[in-house]
Design a protein around this nucleic acid. Structure first.
Lengths: 220, 220, 220, 220
DNA sequence: GATGAATGAGCATTCATTCAT
DNA sequence: AATGAATGAATGCTCATTCAT
């Protein structure tokens, strides 16, 4: 019944994530997925109203918990130290993405392809993500208006958060590490925090003095 | 004749880059490319020995100048300040990628898909890239053996270098900036250099003292 | 139970007739019918032993009353004026078809498709129809052997009887009349009777004399 | 080349007409057609842009010569006796339909199905047909305004013209005649002309007197 | 009896590639 | 060398039917 169907649906999504990640959405056939999930291929169109629907289900299975995580931590900045909240969000995102590293790779890659994805669903998720990041970053840095520094910081942070997963096979092949290993995540988290604290320090000082000579000496 | 063919080949590659970037490799048909390049579709298989060959030609058209750039700067560390060389490399990579932002987006995305790409060609390019980055980073930081810090730094640096192009449409949609604009590149370059100098400073101090309490206070 | 099922069966047949008529037998899916009849789609195969069985049920729901009508009137020629009987049959057929104009359109169209219909059931109904028409026509014209004139008359009559329903949407679109309206049926009946009387008179005179110039008195 | 392709296209259309006629549009698969026409099934979608396009090509291959025939004869009423023209049109339509009896059956059946046909193309053809028929009928009867009698006559005439072909297998099975045989066409033509002359006479007399009991002299 | 889930055969169509010219 | 026609393998999807509950 619904339980049975639920199991089948879940196994289809899991198989799809694996195959979409390694072979791309277009490069994966419904028959491939069906074979791996050990279900009848007709059921995939039946359950998800087509391949496109399955893609959307995969995206949702990523974005819902991802944004829920962001939302929860975002609420805590009202009574907790925003910096601690921000660090915790970063850690949790890394852990979440590490636990779903395939899905993570797939999502952050696939949304760079223009067509074949319902852009509405993606766009609304990205807008929410931007909102939460901005709230957090602004709470830490102390700015509440859109400013280039905050934008820059978030873009760079996003890059840092996604890079290990997007290039996971580059990292394992070239560097012999794997972003799904907790050890990597720990070290990587430390690096990001180091960068973030430095950036925040600089930004804050910029706000207090009017761009005094900062201790970082630029030579280019 | 060969001149004519050369022009045709070039226009095919340009059309392919545009379409591969926006629609993905699998999502682009040879007829699409042929129509955009105003050539006969049979000629694409003819010139490039198949769609796969065209893909490889595109990849080569990215990696050859990209690695040549890395190689040239790498040679200069023998007589110039390595830090200046490193900064210059970063700037040049950003400018190069900005000038070929479509191709850049496509390449760094497509190599995260396992199949459909001759992994040998890609792997050898990535190995070369790693070698040059390591030489440069080690020259700056002062380490010559593979170490976690250097690896981490390069992985993060790679993420920073590719992120704006991989997520270019996210950046334009969500942040209203475009990574092909020189202004963005300038600001982004500054951010990376800020981060890099800080990281280098810390690494160097770590090397001199035996992991003393650093000025960055971790609180998570 | 059987009452419930009976209601369901009837609503299925009604839904099927509507959809078969507008979209064709092959163009209608069992799920379409089930949705319109508000029943479970599995029940259709269950009740009618497949889509084919449902088609046959629809055909039977047309031919049984249709032939019963022909049979009844045919019996009356023993004691009533055959011409009056013939006219009455024509009127009743028109009225019957008008009342079931969708089913009528569907049946007379679908039997022109060779496959997908159990030809036996159709053939036997058409043979009965031919028998009744021949009896009636012969009683009026006075011939009892198969003759070209009688055949021709019946073929033409059949065409006249079915045309308005087969081409109902042509008639409504192009001529602004609809064959389900009583007014149309009245006028159309008059036209057929005019034609029939003329034909019968000619045939009768042909039999008596050897095609002399006849004087026909029309009183329309 | 284009000659080769032309032959293939023609053989595809011929195969399609045969199969569409006997099995219906939906009941015929592209592979059936390809097998009968001895071409690759992909070519059918290639040549006609899909099954729908092939259907339209078949319809056009019927309606173009059919309407051209109507148009030509319609022009002649300017200097020839309209009645003779009308009779000639009827004969030519019968002959044309007899020569293309499969296509004829298919077309007049398929247009009674609402969906799956580009209604625009059909509607425009039927409107033209109506115009020519009305011009001819009005020229003969002497009316130039839309009137019920003329409408009725044309509807009945259309029924007579199409019935033998629509029900050709009924006619052969039940009556042992075939509408593709010239003998049948001759006899059938005579019947229609008989009816038409009678109708025309009546209509004319109705126009002159105010519906008095007229005396019509038949001399067939 | 009745149902929702599941099935597998079959569908039109797409596409990279080939080949005769 | 260059091309338009042709190919066949493969794809997403539909659908009547079946079956366990």
């Amino acid at each position: 019944m619904s339980g049975q169907a639920g199991i089948a649906k879940q196994s289809i999504i899991e198989a799809a994530i694996e195959l979409f990640t390694t072979k791309g959405f277009k490069g994966t056939t419904i028959r491939d997925i069906a074979a791996r999930a050990r279900v009848n291929s007709a059921n995939i169109s039946y359950y998800f109203q087509g391949k496109q629907g399955l893609l959307e289900a995969c995206l949702i299975s990523f974005f819902e918990p991802y944004l829920s995580l962001l939302e929860k931590e975002n609420k805590k900045i009202a009574w907790e130290d925003p910096e601690i909240c921000f660090h915790r969000v970063i850690r949790k995102i890394l852990v979440f993405q590490s636990e779903h590293h395939l899905l993570t790779r797939f999502v952050w890659r696939e949304i760079t392809i223009d067509s074949q994805i319902s852009r509405e669903i993606i766009s609304s998720y990205l807008m929410k993500e931007r909102y939460y990041f901005k709230e957090l970053a602004s709470a830490v840095i102390g700015e509440h208006h859109s400013s280039l520094p905050v934008s820059m910081i978030i873009i760079q942070l996003k890059g840092m958060l996604t890079t290990p997963f997007l290039n996971s096979h580059y990292i394992s092949e070239v560097w012999g590490m794997h972003p799904k290993e907790p050890y990597f995540i720990e070290k990587y988290y430390d690096s990001i925090i180091d960068w973030l604290q430095e950036v925040v320090k600089v930004q804050k000082s910029v706000r207090h003095a009017d761009r005094p000579p900062v201790q970082v000496i630029k030579t280019v």
